[in-house]
Nucleic acid binder design. Sequence first.
DNA 1: GTCTGCGTTGGAAACGTTTCCATTGCAAGC
DNA 2: GCTTGCAATGGAAACGTTTCCAACGCAGAC
Lengths: 340, 340
Amino acid sequence: MGKKRIDIRDVAALAGVSVGSASRVINGAVNVSQATREKVERAIALLGYRPSHAAQALRSRSTKTVGCMISDVTNPLYARLFQAIEARLRTEGYVLLLANGLNNAEREREIMALFQQRRMDGIIVTPGNERDPGILAALNTDMPAVIVDRDMRTRQDAVMFDHVPAMKCAVTHLLDLGHRRIALLVSRVEVRPNRRRVEGFRAAFRAYGLPCPEELIRRQTTSARATFDEVLGLLQSPDPPTAFIVQGTNTLAAALNAISAAGRRIPDDVSLISIGDPDFAQTHVPPIGALRIDPEVVADRIATLLLDRMRRTFADPAPRRSVVRFQFEPRGSCAPPRPR
Amino acid sequence: MGKKRIDIRDVAALAGVSVGSASRVINGAVNVSQATREKVERAIALLGYRPSHAAQALRSRSTKTVGCMISDVTNPLYARLFQAIEARLRTEGYVLLLANGLNNAEREREIMALFQQRRMDGIIVTPGNERDPGILAALNTDMPAVIVDRDMRTRQDAVMFDHVPAMKCAVTHLLDLGHRRIALLVSRVEVRPNRRRVEGFRAAFRAYGLPCPEELIRRQTTSARATFDEVLGLLQSPDPPTAFIVQGTNTLAAALNAISAAGRRIPDDVSLISIGDPDFAQTHVPPIGALRIDPEVVADRIATLLLDRMRRTFADPAPRRSVVRFQFEPRGSCAPPRPR
DNA sequence: GTCTGCGTTGGAAACGTTTCCATTGCAAGC
DNA sequence: GCTTGCAATGGAAACGTTTCCAACGCAGAC
């Protein structure tokens, strides 16, 4: 069994240099002569040598790995975000470890412990609970980190979405058209995006000098079934909403199903705005108005903040905050309400 | 700066035992007395000690990490599959490294190299190109691996989906109802699932003694826009299909949009079957018939095969093959074609 | 010709574990 | 009372790198 792993000593021996020099070539250090560099590179190619990541990580105290804790990759927004972050950090030599927190505090604590044990160079986190003591304790580290769209008074940098003005804009658009009974469907989870959306919703009514229809703010699960039932129920109620604002891909599809099942048409009978902009929103007839946010932009902000910290490029320890804007595209799914 | 990392020596010292004994406790070895175990555990808790993963991996030659290369997490099927695999392997102490191959051969080769350099304990791969020499070469390793739904004559275990009988079943259902002009929309990528679906489609016609309408087998991109245009175009053609079989979440939503834009109704004017079963398919009125496959089951098969190999539980080096069945749920989206 | 300084190199320590091997203590067998 | 065997333990080597430090060679200055 000559099946010995090839290590840096083999490379150094074949190249006729010391192990130290071989290492310097591998890491692109400056103080190395052209001749040595070439000899080592030739040896590496010849042997098909690949450095052991574990040994590198152990010695250099850098894993070149970033932990990413989101609630659920099954959520298309997160999936796209993850993909964009992965692409961006890969070009910088980092690899992503993805973990689904599933809005389960215990699980999230486990994940944080895992990230610490594996000595991630940095982490990107979106906890499902902003006050869980375990999570807060775990964040009390000097590990570079970026928090995504959560209100937590911790020392980490954060990237936030500007839900309030975005929502205000969408609601105002509907108010301008004459809608008064506007329903808002948000997820039940008590986290920043939901809070802020509701806040923006109310703010729009307030700015208009109108009372906010609190009973039309519906917090429910994001399952297709729950959404379908909710929308259908509202439409069949005595004083139905004339417009809906719904959140998310699955939710949007289910809302469309419910509206059509109730025999209503968009935009004549019901106006509709989506938070998030899945592809099929644009092919719908009429195209569904949406609050969209570009995952590439978000990924870029996250990566920039994190890279600064990981490379110690940015010395100021004060937490930074980067806000990404939603864009409102009205499209054809909104029209004045039908006179009763 | 007393900010020294806590290591196993600190634990051993505090517990009053040797480093070796501390290690044995940590790894749950058998030959360790109850007294020692307790002392060490107390010390660990007191110090908040967490073993260095890098050192463990270096010494024990096991990273407890599984690489997972899929084409694209943005695809809901893969997202759900990943999530299920992650949950399953986590209970066994493994962590998943997710990488998007994006059907890009060069990128996939990079990912394979990464997996090798980082010494994954095992890998799960779904290459976008089944014949790329780089990928094939990278798979010529003794690293435990599972290939998911790809036809590759390599030495790895594989989990396959039974597209042919599933598709045959769906098409036969339509043929039984009297449909003859059935359109099949599949992705353009040349990989097993697409090949097999087409195969099953043709087989169903053949078994029926009918010629297969080759011109209705449409290979296109899975973008919502392309699908919408394709379906609308077909519906407005002189001899339009009376039934559609479409693949995937986005595609299904776009097809629904196109059918409705063309002023047709399901199932009276057009019958529709979905490959894959997104939540909103069930809330649609009528509910959309679907070929469904349970991600949990697939994840379980993959995990079982892989764990066998990683633990060397299963000695036979011959590649194993596990086939997962689709289930056809006709639901209400299919009806006899309207007489012309 | 000697000295200084710089760029390059070799050698060895260190990173934090696991695992092997030898040793110890103790009970059982004779 | 002496040997044998086994469970538990301590100590040290090993895993494969990076990085520190000392040494070296050589060019230029004096």
